[in-house]
């Protein structure tokens, strides 16, 4: 199952704060797709996954939505 967390427009620490809460509700085979507009989220998600042994950062993507705003997409899963 893939669940989407829309953290667009939110400043840090909110994207990671909400992602942690969401991950806690997911099973080990689920994927959490986090949408964020804060560019700082790119490095922060990497740092978070490095230090939290229950979080795995599967991949990161960058897209552009209508209107030109850049969206940073983070795919996370929960490690047992």
């Amino acid at each position: 199952m893939e669940k989407v967390l829309d953290a667009r427009g939110l400043k840090c620490p909110m994207p990671i704060f909400k992602a942690k809460k969401e991950l806690e509700t997911l099973g080990p085979d689920d994927v959490l797709k986090v949408l964020a507009t804060d560019k700082g989220s790119v490095l922060d998600m990497q740092g978070w996954a490095k230090t939290n042994k229950h979080v795995s950062l599967i991949k990161q993507e960058t897209t552009s939505e209508e209107g030109g705003r850049t969206v940073y997409i983070h795919y996370l899963s929960r490690l047992a």
Partner: peptide, 29 residues
């Protein structure tokens, strides 16, 4: 901030500063 940002640029004073780097996500976890 995360460790990379801290390593790249930090606050400096006239005297050496005690600085501790603990990323904010450690306070969420």
């Amino acid at each position: 901030r995360n460790a990379d940002e801290f390593a790249a640029w930090r606050i400096e004073g006239r005297r050496p500063l005690d600085q501790l780097n603990v990323p904010y996500f450690a306070f969420i976890d």
